[in-house]
Structure formats: structure tokens, C-alpha cells
């Protein structure tokens, strides 16, 4: 019932106000919307930039090195996986070895990062950095040995 009334009323009542209100609203909203995202984007950019700056300033050199290496591993592993998807997995052992090497290396490097990051000192205080690095080297050597043998 109420919508019917409204429809009956609307032609009798002022015709101009109805289009006016929406037009003003749209214009204002469009101007606002155009400004608001830029503001948020700017804030996001600044947040990201701040984050990046903070990372550069506070992260120790070795942790940065680890992060670079891990990014490198992700790229290498990703490329191998894409190649497998595109070309097929024919020497499957080669794919497993190649992809597994990057994944395994990534995992080992991540554990090294956890153990040597100064922020985790409370949890890993008993493990010296030298000890963690030695574990990492030994684990990596075993991984490489397996991968190279598996690829035949």
C-alpha cells in the first residue's frame, strides 16, 4: 500500500525536487569518491613505504640476506612449476628433484631464519647462531645430495 500511494503522489507533488536531489547527491558523491580512494591509496602507499623503510632500518643484515635467498628460491621454484604445467612432467624424477630442491631449500632456509632472528632470542636462546648455521649447511648438503642423485 505505501509504495502505491507514493507513486500516486509523486506526479501530483513537485516533479523537479525528485530529479534534483539525486543529481546533487550523485555529483557530490562522485567528487567524494574520486578523492577518497586516492587518499586511501596514498595512505596504503605510505604504509607500505613505511613498512619497507622500517624493514630496511630494523632488520639485521643476515636476516635480509636470508629473505633475498628465499625470494630467489620462490622464483626459481615457481619457474620450474610453470614449466612443468606448460610442457608436461615427462622426466618426472627430474621435476621432483628440481622442484623439491627449491622447496626443501626454502624450508631449511626458513628454519635458519627462525633460529637466527634476534627477535626469537627468547625461544631459541639455547641455540647459538653458529650451531643453527651448521645444521642448515648439513641439512642442505644432504638435500642437494639426494636431489642430484634422484635426477640421475
Amino acid at each position: 500500500m505505501p509504495p502505491k500511494r507514493a507513486s500516486q503522489i509523486s506526479p501530483n507533488a513537485s516533479v523537479p525536487p525528485i530529479p534534483k536531489a539525486p543529481s546533487s547527491a550523485t555529483s557530490s558523491s562522485s567528487s567524494k569518491s574520486s578523492s577518497a580512494p586516492t587518499q586511501t591509496a596514498q595512505t596504503a602507499q605510505t604504509v607500505l613505504f613505511d613498512l619497507w623503510q622500517r624493514y630496511l632500518n630494523t632488520t639485521p643484515q643476515r636476516v635480509k640476506l636470508i629473505d633475498v635467498f628465499m625470494a630467489f628460491l620462490v622464483v626459481v621454484g615457481g619457474l620450474q612449476f610453470v614449466y612443468c604445467v606448460l610442457v608436461g612432467n615427462y622426466p618426472f624424477n627430474a621435476f621432483l628433484a628440481g622442484f623439491g630442491a627449491t622447496v626443501g631449500q626454502f624450508v631449511l632456509t626458513a628454519s635458519l631464519r627462525i633460529q637466527t632472528n634476534p627477535e626469537n632470542k627468547r625461544e631459541f636462546g639455547s641455540v647459538s647462531h653458529e650451531r643453527a648455521f651448521a645444521d642448515f649447511v648439513l641439512g642442505s648438503l644432504i638435500l642437494h645430495f639426494f636431489c642430484v642423485n634422484f635426477i640421475n
Binding site: V76, G77, Y90, G98, A101, Q105, S140, V148
Partner: peptide, 22 residues
């Protein structure tokens, strides 16, 4: 042997690149 199958060269390269990166 692995190198006789040319399709696997990318993954062989992947292993050695990983090792070299390490």
C-alpha cells in the same frame, strides 16, 4: 641418463641453480 632427455634440462638447471644460489 638425465641429460639425454632434453625435456628435463630445465629441472636439472633448477637443481644446480639452487645449489649455486645456496
Amino acid at each position: 641418463r638425465s641429460w639425454e632427455i632434453s625435456a628435463g634440462w630445465v629441472w636439472i638447471a633448477g637443481v644446480w641453480i639452487t645449489i649455486a644460489g645456496w
